[in-house]
Amino acid sequence: MKNPVFLGALTVASLVAGAAAAATLDDVKSRGKLNCGTNTGLVGFAAPDANGDWQGFDVALCRAVAAAVLGDQSAVEFVPTTGKTRFTALASGEIDILARNTTWTFSRDVDLKFTFVGVNYYDGQGFIVPKSLGVSSAKELDGATVCIQTGTTTELNLADFFRVNNISYEPVPIETSAEAQQQYLAGACDAYTTDASGLAATRATFEDPTAHVILPEIISKEPLGPLVRHGDDDWADVVRWTLNALIAAEEYGVTSANIDELVANPTSNPEINRLLGTEGDLGAMLGLPADWAVKAIKAGGNYGELFEKYIGQSTPIGLARGLNAQWTEGGLLYAPPFR
């Protein structure tokens, strides 16, 4: 993705495509299905289960958007995309929304003409090493061999980190995370680096997870979020506020369990009432029914419920909330007011 000619072509083409297919919301409604670009497979974020239904944290967001727009969380056509095909799939209109753990960066937002509507997971790059290596900080990795996926931002972050700390390393390029796990276990590299969520998922698969440690240093910022095409702000609003509704629902204690009760007997908290459409007309402003947020939350639960279900402490991945806690609990999740 470093080729300027390619990026230029992509930009021109996405401008054309963006201008031609502006009213995504109307398209989705008339089609009756949401086309959601997702990962071909990433533990916790997107994977088909034994029945062929897609499950995961990113997938759940698409289902919530489908529920909000179409009233049916199963009205989603999942389009598996790879790291190479994801941006063209979105720019060309093949998909309406890309929820594929994509890092929000300047060039993707500005140069590739996409709109990141928010962040659904704050990630960062870390290292995993065998305990027997006796390393407790990434700064002690001088001269180490490091397994790294090629062609990703993690490769560049790694080079930056070692340069800043003035230590050397030897990269072992690998293509997929499955290959990385095998190489790392076979001892082809001293350390394996990728997003911390990926490291946790990888460690969970080892026969003896306790023999490996994830080092405390997080060497990059990886705000992962859903994105849509530039130039269709109405549609971007729908996706942005669906995500915000899930986050706000957790903040206000609205869960998939008590939401019916809250709709039937509106509380004295006007913010919750506006969110759930029992007061005001926020839905109509988006061009959606009044109960859009109710449908979105009922699809899989609020943000916290989704987190616990797919990647939280109760799952094999076992991620702590960390940065992804509500702002009231020391995290970065901060939904703007529903007013």
């Binding site: 990962n39 071909t40 533990v43 974020f45 994977a47 598996p80 990888t202 969970a204 698969t205 094999p316």
Partner: peptide, 10 residues
């Protein structure tokens, strides 16, 4: 690859 992306079969 997709099957491995399930937490059970990773």
């Amino acid at each position: 690859n997709s099957i491995r992306a399930n937490a059970e079969w990773n």
